[in-house]
Design a protein around this nucleic acid. Structure first.
Length: 199
DNA sequence: GTGAGGATCGTCT
DNA sequence: GACGATCCTCACA
């Protein structure tokens, strides 16, 4: 007997209502999709970091709610895009119920669809390697044409949104857990999750 | 192949 | 006024 596949593989807000650590780990292997100008840009999520909120000094929400980080305090499953170092955008998805801050930073993807478009958006040749296209938080936003101005506050659990996350089943690989990268506070906390492909 | 340092600007103090 | 959840380039081994 085979179970019927769900009509839509899009992750719902139920998925994101849990704690960032749980959501981060569960997001590995899921597929980030951006419908852009009639084209699908997609990539499998292979690296994420969890940011806990008020109890996490490294989180943008640690100092309390501001106009910039309000998305983290809002309902789960909403894109939080922030601008960093004067030149990069980074994509997070909010977690926990409405009113509780927390989020998951998407750090790296393996490109699946629209690879040529991604390369063009990154200003790279069409045969660029995945690591060059979407191997970092700033890179993947550029490759997916995701910006703070256009995508911060978008609900990724809604079918009509241009961005969502799809579940295409379990992908082979092992999960590696390490300290987070590029931060100066709470650096010892093992909240970075990396999907290592099996060889 | 690896490591160090510069670029650049929104946000908060 | 200072800092930051990054990336790229260049120098050196």
């Amino acid at each position: 007997m085979s179970l019927p596949l769900p009509q839509s593989p899009i992750l719902t807000s139920d998925f994101f209502v849990r704690s960032p650590e749980i959501v981060a780990r569960a997001m590995l292997g899921k597929v980030l999709v951006h419908h852009r100008k009639g084209e699908r840009l997609s990539g499998r999520i292979i690296e994420v970091e969890a940011y806990l909120g008020l109890s996490d000094p490294a989180s943008h929400a640690f100092r309390g709610r501001t106009s910039a980080n309000a998305v983290l305090f809002g309902p789960p499953g909403v894109a939080y895009v922030y601008f960093i170092y004067g030149m990069h955008d980074c994509l997070n998805v909010s977690c926990l119920p409405d009113g509780e801050p927390g989020g998951v930073l998407i750090r790296a993807l393996t490109p699946l669809e629209g690879i040529k478009t991604m390369a063009r958006l990154r200003g790279l040749p069409a045969d660029a390697k995945p690591q060059q296209l979407t191997g970092g938080p700033g890179k993947l936003c550029e490759a997916f044409a995701i910006t703070r101005a256009t995508h911060n506050g978008i609900d990724v659990t809604k079918v009509e949104s241009s961005i969502h996350i799809e579940d295409h089943g379990r992908s082979p690989g092992t999960i590696e857990i390490t300290p987070r990268i590029g931060i100066s506070k709470a650096i010892e906390q093992p909240l970075r999750f990396v999907l290592k492909a099996v060889k």
